[in-house]
């Protein structure tokens, strides 16, 4: 289990990085960021890139920025950065709650938020967070930078719409209003495993009723996504066990679950119902 040979490039500026990628992408060049998914894939020789462009030395990608209405996470920001809230309010709390479910402590020291999105694993917590909160990403190449909605970025499991010369340089998550509540629930077989199913829900509570509901599921289908049918159930209603059950049922009906070694589609559908309801229950103070 030794990786195949590759040429190693270590740019120190974004400009160098996009140039290197433009040059080497046609020769099977790839970005190396946290490496926590790429390196094992290479060890198994399921990936044999001829060039790796290591962006760990690009300082301008290493920061988290907070603007008036958003959190901007650079490509070099590691999972562990979120162990403590990176911003006041619901979003910071949400991220610090979710991050503890990502793999294991040492993996979180290296793996990156943006790398998770670029990898597009169906069970990635950050993909779920990004889909649920309608994140936007910035893709940068020698041709310039463009902004892409996460829903447009992830095409299918492990597949994105990034052009081969584009680096996913940052993710923009909207800050959540003060009255936002969130709940997250994940079921996996062992601590740190990829989820068999998980759900993130957020909503605002105004005058006791639910506004702006977001119900996301991950690990269930090929791509984490919001389930509009469940959000409709919640909108304008008072939180209650019955309401949450109805929303969870809507998810189970709407989902088109995948099947793999660990879980059949049938089982995943039932799990989806459960994780959504439990995420909603956890959203109560």
């Amino acid at each position: 289990m030794k990786p195949a040979s590759f040429e190693y490039h270590r740019p120190t500026t974004l400009e160098e990085a996009v140039k290197a990628l433009a040059e080497y992408a046609p020769q099977d060049g790839r970005i190396l960021s946290g490496g926590q998914s790429l390196v094992p894939t290479m060890a198994l020789r399921m990936a044999k890139p001829a060039h790796l462009i290591d962006i760990n030395g690009v300082r301008e990608l290493a920061d988290i920025k907070v603007t008036e209405d958003a959190l901007i996470i650079g490509a070099g920001v590691r999972h562990a950065a979120f162990h403590k809230p990176v911003v006041d309010g619901a979003l910071g709390q949400l991220l610090s709650f979710v991050v503890r479910h990502i793999a294991h402590y040492p993996i979180r020291q290296r793996g990156t938020f943006c790398g998770s999105l670029a990898h597009a694993d169906p069970s990635s917590e950050w993909c779920l967070v990004s889909a649920t909160l309608d994140a936007e990403i910035t893709a940068t190449s020698v041709r310039g930078a463009r902004s892409i909605a996460v829903t447009e970025l992830i095409e299918w499991a492990m597949s994105t719409t990034l052009a081969e010369d584009e680096i996913l340089t940052s993710v923009r998550l909207p800050l959540l209003p003060e009255n936002t509540r969130f709940g997250f629930y994940e079921f996996s077989r062992r601590a740190g495993d990829y989820a068999l199913a998980m759900s993130l829900v957020t909503y605002e509570l105004a005058d006791g009723v639910i506004a702006a509901p977001r119900v996301g599921i991950g690990g269930v289908e090929g791509v984490p996504r919001r389930i509009a049918e469940a959000e409709e159930v919640l909108l304008g209603q008072k939180p209650s066990p019955d309401l949450f059950r109805a929303a969870a049922e809507a998810v189970a009906n709407a989902a088109d679950p995948m099947s793999d070694l660990q879980a059949s589609a049938n089982y995943r559908r039932d799990l989806a119902r459960t994780v959504v309801r439990r995420a909603l229950e956890r959203s109560l103070p």
Partner: peptide, 16 residues
Amino acid sequence: ILTTTLADYMPPTAHE
């Protein structure tokens, strides 16, 4: 054989 990594063959951790 479908279980050729420790992600597929699931030895339990301290948690389990």
